[in-house]
Design a protein around this nucleic acid. Structure first.
Lengths: 239, 239
DNA sequence: GAGTGGTCTAGACCACGGC
DNA sequence: CCGTGGTCTAGACCACTCG
């Protein structure tokens, strides 16, 4: 280890090379926590590359939460690097099928109603009128996999009235018919109620992972869904 | 809505403008799921900007999971857009103090031992020797907030033997002395054992959110920690 | 082989935000 | 005000991968 630094060879510097070199300097405390890094232009000279290339490298380090940049303020090594991890949450059918299991779906309940306050809490300042509530179970190999309790905004997505939610899950219908441009996600654990237990085929009082997702388009509410997973469900992310 | 498309004004196109215009075309199904987008160069002509600018816009859409790009293959709208959400997991002291609460810390147990198999499962092919086990509680306003059960690799981080873990948590010591370049994260729910309950000051059988983090540097294991949070703990992310 | 995205450059101007 | 990062450009070459 420890070549890096200047671009001594005639080989052209790549932004990944520059990024790793700077990363290394941070790790070995050449640039310690709270330290200020040289200006992009100066680093570009050091590495014998264009300023754009340094910029590209810096953006990556910034996305990783390692540094902070501000115009005029310059670039700084973060005092307390945050851990940033990105999860991918696929469409449930796809997730099941990619595991080589058989996907199934069952509608449990559907009605137009006023969402309760704990659901409305996810809506921010959005004034909720009556919404379509859809409760359904996604199955993997004919056994409960995820139970979802969803509220769909009929004002934003009126066409869903025409959808046949016996056949196709609201999850998939929405993916095909209504994209979103903002997503709020909340994850927590809670004990399975007797109803949960019956639906999921587990014992009451089990610990369940709950995902609450609310999506928006153009500031307008699309849907808010609370997904309850089986006790053995895990979310996995890397770097 | 709905101007966009060509850059009719003399105003210079920004990559954000280009991104939003393309995003809009995807939303309104000008480019529907599975459709192929024009080549970057052609889009650049359409928008009256440089190809670099289109690239920048495309990278953003790609990061959001909306499109796929391949050399020679071109750019495609994803059939099933994945939901990508990024969490920030701060140093616990900081998290507590930012909420305006008083941070506290208490060491529960510390010894050198062989990690059990369920911990080693996080190590991949890494052959674990004896490691330093550190169990500790983080407090907020003098009440249990997070309990962590940590294993530190003495081979990779020998200096931690010198640390005074009565005073400073291994969490903070490691943040200051040992950066990582890879992180694996696993999140799930589990019932509180009697021991958990006693430590966290809650009832047995409560549902707890568990975070397992394993970090690495240069392919070498640094630490693996299982953090148990209070039942009311939530992870929150926004697109 | 050839088409497409990925990267690099050198230079210009802009926008934010300390001083 | 003015230093610093952010963006845009036009053009060149490279690298992957599909046919």
């Amino acid at each position: 280890m420890g070549n890096d630094s200047q671009n001594r060879n005639n080989s052209r510097a790549t932004w990944i090379g520059v990024r790793d070199a700077i990363h290394a300097r941070i790790l070995c405390r050449d640039y310690g926590p709270g330290a200020r890094l040289p200006r992009d232009e100066e680093l570009a000279e050091q590495f014998g590359c264009a300023r754009t290339t340094v910029q590209r490298a810096m953006r990556d380090l910034q996305d990783k939460g390692l540094i902070e940049r501000r115009r005029k303020g310059g670039t700084w090594v973060r005092q307390h690097p945050v851990t940033r991890a990105t999860f991918e949450i696929p469409v449930i059918r796809q997730e099941v099928e990619e595991k080589g299991r058989t996907y199934g779906y069952q509608l449990v309940h559907q009605e137009v109603a006023q969402p309760p306050l704990d659901v409305q809490a996810n809506f921010g300042s959005w004034a909720a009128g009556p919404m379509l509530q859809v409760q359904a179970i996604h199955l993997a190999d004919h056994r409960p996999y995820v139970y979802e309790d969803r509220w769909v905004c009929l004002q934003t997505v009126p066409d869903i009235r025409e959808a046949d939610l016996q056949r196709e899950s609201a999850n998939e219908w929405l993916v095909r018919h209504q994209h979103y441009d903002r997503l709020d996600l909340r994850i927590y654990a809670r004990k399975a109620t007797e109803r949960d237990a019956g639906l999921m085929g587990i014992a009451g009082g089990e610990a369940l992972l709950v995902l609450e997702r609310t999506t928006w388009i153009d500031q307008r509410l699309i849907t808010s869904v609370r997904s309850i997973t089986r006790p053995d469900y895990q979310l996995v992310a890397s770097t």
